[in-house]
């Protein structure tokens, strides 16, 4: 138990002193995860919206696939991205492996089905009268789509926040395609795994607290949007 209390004491000291190593690792996590969620949002929200509103051949299959992909294990995504970005892989010439970009690609793949799937549910949950009301008041196709998005905005924000929560706390992808390089691709989760392995509980716990400090407002936001939605 002593080493755990010692770890907590050391962690609090590092946080209070704004330890450079802790800050650097936290910033990498934040930068990579924000970039990933932006990409996943740009792709996932329109896909979810389209699948929800359009009738097309294979729609049911698309919904089932999206829902299945929401449960994709991070190591499987890590393996997939690794095989594409490794030197022998089809995208090996890009030189992305063991860079933050590789982590961004992997995390975007992880977040995409979450954002798309939850956006789909959010759009389906929007009152059917919104479309008719917008059209009756003179809206064109784009304006009608925007009206539907606007009415479902809280649920869509909740989808984005759920995606961010998932990528911010994942470890498999970052470890496999980021390489856990200090000051470059070492993020909170990979650093915790490493420091725990080394028996350095202080840094591990400090990073864990930082992780929770970021996760807490995210969850508060999530809760807020969920309440707004209902």
């Amino acid at each position: 138990m002593d080493n755990i209390f010692e770890g907590i004491r050391c962690a609090l000291k590092m946080i209070v002193r704004l330890d450079r190593q802790v800050i650097s690792i936290a910033l990498i996590s934040i930068k990579v995860s924000i970039t990933s969620i932006i990409l996943a949002t740009l792709l996932g929200v329109p896909v979810g919206f389209y699948v929800a509103l359009k009738d097309f051949w294979g729609k049911q299959a698309a919904v089932v696939i999206l829902n299945t992909l929401m449960a994709l294990p991070t190591v499987l995504i890590g393996l997939l991205v690794y095989s594409f970005l490794s030197r022998q892989g089809p995208l090996g010439t890009l030189g992305f492996l063991y860079t933050p970009w590789a982590m961004v690609i992997g995390q975007s793949i992880l977040a995409f089905p979450i954002v798309a799937g939850l956006s789909l549910s959010a759009t389906q949950g929007v009152d059917k009268r919104v479309k008719k009301t917008a059209l009756a008041l003179g809206a064109n196709g784009r304006q009608t789509a925007l009206a539907i998005l606007a009415e479902g905005r809280f649920a869509i924000f909740a989808a984005i926040i759920a995606g961010f929560g998932r990528v911010f706390t994942e470890v498999g992808i970052s470890m496999m395609v980021g390489g856990n390089i200090q000051g470059y691709t070492r993020n909170i989760t990979t650093a915790i795994a490493l420091e725990t392995g080394k028996g350095e509980f202080g840094l591990g716990i400090a990073l864990g607290i930082v992780l929770l400090m970021v996760a807490l407002p995210i969850n508060i936001l999530f809760y807020y949007f969920q309440r707004k939605k209902s």
Partner: peptide, 12 residues
């Protein structure tokens, strides 16, 4: 032309 539905929807 505009239509007001029986149970009209009001935007948030």
């Amino acid at each position: 032309i505009t239509l007001v539905m029986q149970d009209p929807y009001l935007f948030k």
